Amino acid sequence: MTTLTSFNSGLDQGFVSLVGAGPGDPDLLTVKGYRAIQQAEVVVYDRLVAPEILAIANEKAQMIYVGKKLDYHCVPQEQINQILVDKAREGKRVVRLKGGDSFIFGRGGEELEKLAEEGVRFEVVPGITAAAGATAYAGIPLTHRDHAQAVQFITGHVQKDGKEIDWHAAAQSNSTLVFYMGLKQSGYIADKLITHGLSDDMPCAIIENGTRREQRVLRGSLAQLPSMAQQAQSPALIVVGSVTSLHEKLEWFNINH
């Protein structure tokens, strides 16, 4: 029989739980994440966390918003790191709540590095990442024996050290390519993939507000990706690969809702 353990069980000192809230649908939150939020004294949360998930928190919990959106950070990353350290040192049970999974383009590793350096105890509660959740709700399998045997998750943001993505490897990989935060760079992404050998008629999709009731899926070719992106709004995920052609056959979420 499985035992559901309590967050921060047996600890009376400050403690941080890094919780992935999932891609949008509040029902995709894990049981362990649910319990951590319920028991938290401080919740430090991002922009894309569903209101229904925030409502799980105790009414006495301190709620600290540190959300980010394109080209605007409400609170600088260094300050977020320090908030977690300071609240834990006050002896509080802290939940750092992020959309998706905290270790996939969520800077969760950076925040835990700071906690480790400061001697703050922590745990990680994984969440369903947007690539897995949004594509599943869009009826797009990330892998399929007839289409792709591998998948790559790629950030659409400029990398911290300024290094380029290995576009040749991505274009020649025969993998499904999933770009996070790539709307603004969609023209550049399409141009680089085509330049390095991917066909301009390769099917692709943009999933807007994945797993939410307002989810929308745009489909077209890689050459059409920039014009598709102009019709979409963040949060959105770009998927490149022949698996996206299965959307019309396997679509279920928008039909059921």
Rank of each mutant, 00 (worst) to 15 (best):
residue 205 A to R: 01
residue 153 F to Y: 11
residue 165 I to H: 15
residue 131 A to H: 01
residue 47 R to G: 11
residue 122 F to S: 09
residue 33 G to R: 00
residue 114 K to C: 05
residue 234 S to R: 06
residue 135 T to F: 06
residue 127 G to H: 10
residue 207 I to C: 09
residue 159 Q to T: 05
residue 9 S to R: 14
residue 107 R to M: 08
residue 130 A to G: 04
residue 170 A to V: 06
residue 131 A to F: 01
residue 118 E to M: 13
residue 149 Q to N: 14
residue 204 C to S: 05
residue 73 H to E: 13
residue 233 Q to L: 07
residue 28 L to P: 10
residue 18 L to E: 06
residue 1 M to I: 13
residue 35 R to T: 07
residue 219 R to I: 13
residue 140 I to G: 02
residue 207 I to A: 03
residue 126 P to S: 10
residue 155 T to A: 11
residue 232 A to Y: 00
residue 53 I to M: 08
residue 180 Y to C: 06
residue 145 R to Q: 08
residue 201 D to I: 10
residue 101 D to P: 03
residue 94 V to M: 08
residue 210 G to W: 05
residue 216 R to K: 15
residue 193 L to Q: 07
residue 84 L to M: 04
residue 192 K to V: 12
residue 176 T to A: 04
residue 4 L to Y: 13
residue 179 F to H: 03
residue 234 S to K: 11
residue 59 E to C: 06
residue 234 S to F: 11
residue 257 H to L: 15
residue 166 D to A: 10
residue 216 R to W: 13
residue 238 I to G: 02
residue 95 V to L: 08
residue 194 I to G: 00
residue 19 V to Y: 04
residue 186 S to Y: 03
residue 237 L to S: 10
residue 70 L to A: 12
residue 113 E to P: 01
residue 10 G to T: 10
residue 42 V to L: 08
residue 248 E to V: 01
residue 70 L to R: 15
residue 46 D to I: 00
residue 103 F to Y: 12
residue 31 V to E: 15
residue 203 P to R: 03
residue 178 V to Y: 05
residue 130 A to Q: 05
residue 87 K to D: 09
residue 184 K to R: 12
residue 51 P to E: 12
residue 229 A to R: 00
residue 229 A to M: 04
residue 254 N to I: 13
residue 113 E to Y: 03
residue 108 G to D: 10
residue 226 P to C: 02
residue 169 A to W: 05
residue 142 L to H: 00
residue 175 S to F: 08
residue 100 G to R: 01
residue 105 F to K: 05
residue 36 A to D: 12
residue 87 K to N: 06
residue 89 R to C: 14
residue 219 R to Q: 15
residue 224 Q to F: 02
residue 110 E to D: 14
residue 23 P to K: 07
residue 87 K to Q: 13
residue 176 T to C: 03
residue 110 E to A: 03
residue 246 L to V: 09
residue 174 N to K: 11
residue 162 G to K: 03
residue 158 V to K: 13
residue 55 A to G: 07
residue 230 Q to N: 11
residue 154 I to F: 06
residue 133 G to P: 06
residue 43 V to F: 01
residue 75 V to D: 09
residue 173 S to T: 09
residue 234 S to T: 11
residue 122 F to G: 04
residue 26 P to M: 06
residue 155 T to V: 02
residue 59 E to G: 10
residue 7 F to A: 12
residue 171 A to T: 08
residue 37 I to P: 05
residue 34 Y to R: 13
residue 30 T to D: 08
residue 105 F to W: 07
residue 240 V to G: 01
residue 54 L to G: 06
residue 217 V to P: 10
residue 197 G to H: 04
residue 175 S to K: 02
residue 45 Y to C: 00
residue 223 A to T: 03
residue 234 S to H: 09
residue 194 I to C: 10
residue 23 P to F: 00
residue 59 E to Y: 02
residue 69 K to Y: 07
residue 137 Y to K: 07
residue 179 F to A: 00
residue 124 V to R: 03
residue 70 L to C: 10
residue 87 K to F: 00
residue 245 S to L: 10
residue 84 L to H: 08
residue 255 I to V: 12
residue 228 M to N: 00
residue 89 R to N: 15
residue 11 L to G: 13
residue 166 D to F: 08
residue 198 L to I: 05
residue 13 Q to S: 11
residue 133 G to Q: 10
residue 222 L to W: 02
residue 29 L to H: 02
residue 83 I to C: 09
residue 138 A to N: 09
residue 240 V to M: 01
residue 1 M to R: 15
residue 168 H to E: 14
residue 33 G to A: 10
residue 8 N to K: 14
residue 225 L to G: 06
residue 4 L to V: 15
residue 95 V to W: 01
residue 45 Y to V: 00
residue 247 H to S: 09
